[in-house]
């Protein structure tokens, strides 16, 4: 059965705030060349918008079947990143578990949209936009919810190990501008790894006079993961 409408609106508000914040991170990271995991921020923007529309039909912004394509591609993409990481090729994100977490999240989103579409085709109630207790595979929904909550807990455990932005700013040493060093796509150690971290300017030079590469708040990024995970788990539980 669907949840209370006020509760759906509450969770929708949470994911909209997360999406808006992650969009801001993308813009700031791009404009100021500050390190951030842009892929994760981007997927969080999409997930936030999609989740809001699933929880509250009035907030839907995509055509039928569109989100399924988006999250199928997302799952495949992060899965590919995870496989690359397993094979030893470094990617932004660092470890396969980080990518697997987003494979799981994209998979859960895909399942939810497919299940909702199944109920809609069967003429089920769409009062709150959630599958009214007639999910295609409730056992799978429960397993996905378990897994998502597991990642939420794991992320919360790591939260205290992430430094606040102020401490990061004090730690980051000034980076002297150097010409041509980024022509081949490389980045200085202060800017971190691959794309998404302090990318070169349009002229191929390292960001001229850009002496501080303070990362965007990793703590808030982790909090976004937690908020999205809990909300997705809620949506899956409603599908039982």
């Amino acid at each position: 059965m669907g949840g209370p409408s006020w509760l759906a609106w509450t969770f929708a508000s949470v994911v909209i705030v997360v999406a808006a914040y992650c969009l801001t991170r993308l813009l700031v990271s791009w404009r100021q060349h500050r390190p951030s995991d842009r892929r994760v921020d981007a997927i969080h923007v999409l997930m936030g918008v999609a989740m809001a529309g699933m929880l509250v039909p009035r907030l839907r912004v995509f055509w039928a079947g569109g989100w399924e394509v988006v999250f199928a591609i997302g799952a495949a993409w992060f899965g590919w990143l995870a496989i690359r990481e397993f094979r030893g090729r470094a990617t932004v994100g660092g470890r396969p578990g980080h990518h697997l977490q987003h494979v799981l999240a994209c998979g859960a989103m895909l399942y939810m949209f497919l299940a909702a579409a199944t109920v809609a085709k069967a003429g089920g109630s769409a009062m709150s936009g959630m599958a009214a207790g007639a999910a295609h595979a409730p056992t799978l929904a429960l397993v996905l919810a378990f897994a998502l909550f597991g990642y939420v807990i794991w992320t919360a455990d790591r939260l205290s190990s992430l430094a606040p932005v102020a401490a990061l700013a004090a730690r980051v040493a000034p980076v002297p501008a150097f010409a041509g060093a980024a022509a081949g796509g490389g980045a200085s150690p202060a800017t971190g790894g691959e794309d998404g971290h302090g990318t070169p300017g349009d002229d191929g030079q390292a960001p001229a006079a850009h002496v501080r590469q303070v990362p965007l708040s990793p703590r808030l990024a982790a909090c976004c993961e937690i908020a999205m995970g809990v909300t997705m788990g809620y949506a899956l539980i409603l599908m039982l």
Binding site: P35, R158, L168, G192, P218, A221
Partner: peptide
């Protein structure tokens, strides 16, 4: 610790001295 932390570890955003594996 950096490896386990993912991208925050790669950019020095992890307090290595305070992180212990569970």
């Amino acid at each position: 610790a950096r490896a386990r932390a993912g991208w925050p570890g790669g950019i020095g955003a992890v307090r290595e001295e305070s992180w212990t594996a569970p």
